[in-house]
């Protein structure tokens, strides 16, 4: 294949991945690596490098819209970024020492988990846990606009959340994904932060987390400009379209179909990993 044929194909695949990733809340990064490796046979290390870069683009590109709505909590984000960035460096360092087949298998399982999480309904009731002294010291409690005024919330189990964030960062650095699903679990389930605040703050954090491992990928030569270019431009344009679509309608059927596609890709990644094909 020549460059003139390869670049548009990769751009197209990335745009679809970005579009569906934004629509389902899975994020484009988690879909693009399996798509590139399974459909085009791209080496998983190149795919991971390109995907990580596109994760920064979608996270930063969407941040402005989220910030305007006033849901994200900059203190929670900044404090937890200590854990995610250290985790990202550990993950990116481990990635170099992990056989590609093992990376594919781990990727498959993380993908299955993300698809499962996104298929569930977001919790409706906000419930706070026991008061946390660390949360008070760090001034993590906040408020957000809800129907009928401003709603206060308090944060709990800060240490557990911090630990989970380290894991989320390590997975992000290992696989070149945003690991938004894991971040939301840490904030929503452990720290009892309201769902909307969790998702928007998580999106805010994804770019910073990814930037921590991007430097390591770059130095190692996993960021190949010829591949990363159509991936980044494709995922970004696709996810911008997808985000706009999301506001217009909640496409339930599409979400379900996509969930099945993602699950099939995940199983393919795991099988190919065990067969030593990746």
């Amino acid at each position: 294949m020549t460059l003139a044929q390869f670049a548009p194909i990769v751009f197209g695949i990335s745009a679809v991945a970005g579009f569906l990733g934004a629509l389902t809340g899975l994020g484009g990064g988690v879909v693009i690596t399996p798509a590139l490796t399974l459909l085009l046979g791209v080496d998983i290390r190149y795919a991971i490098g390109a995907s990580l870069v596109s994760v920064i683009a979608t996270s930063s590109g969407a941040a402005a819209a989220y910030v305007r709505e006033g849901f994200s909590n900059i203190r929670i984000g900044m404090f937890l970024e200590i854990a995610t960035t250290i985790g990202a460096i550990v993950g990116a360092t481990l990635a170099a020492k992990t056989p590609t087949s093992a990376l594919a298998i781990i990727f498959g399982f993380v993908l299955l988990h993300a698809a499962w999480e996104s298929s569930k309904q977001p919790p409706r009731n906000s419930r706070s846990g026991p008061p946390d002294r660390l949360a008070a010291t760090l001034k993590l409690d906040g408020s957000y606009p809800a129907d009928g005024g401003i709603k206060q919330y308090s944060v709990t189990r800060v240490k557990a959340g911090f630990g989970l964030m380290f894991i989320a960062g390590a997975v992000s650095g290992l696989l070149g994904i945003g690991s938004g699903a894991l971040k939301v679990i840490a904030m929503d389930r452990a720290m009892r932060i309201p769902f909307k605040v969790s998702t928007t703050t998580s999106n805010f954090m994804i770019g910073v987390t990814a930037a921590a491992s991007a430097g390591i990928y770059l130095h190692r030569g996993w960021v190949e400009p010829t591949l990363a270019m159509p991936v980044m431009l494709g995922v970004l344009s696709g996810s911008m379209l997808g985000a706009r679509q999301l506001i217009a309608a909640r496409p339930k059927v599409l979400r379900r179909i996509f969930g099945v596609v993602v699950a099939i890709m995940a199983v393919e990644m795991i099988l190919n990993g065990f067969r030593g094909k990746i």
Binding site: M1, T2, L3, A4, Q5, F6, A7, L40, G41, V42, D43, R45, Y46, R220, G221, W222, V223, E224, P225, T226, L227
Partner: peptide, 13 residues
């Protein structure tokens, strides 16, 4: 644009 493009085998950038 006529350069070959394939990323199936890995060589660091």
């Amino acid at each position: 644009s006529h350069e070959p493009a394939s990323f199936q085998s890995f060589q660091a950038a």
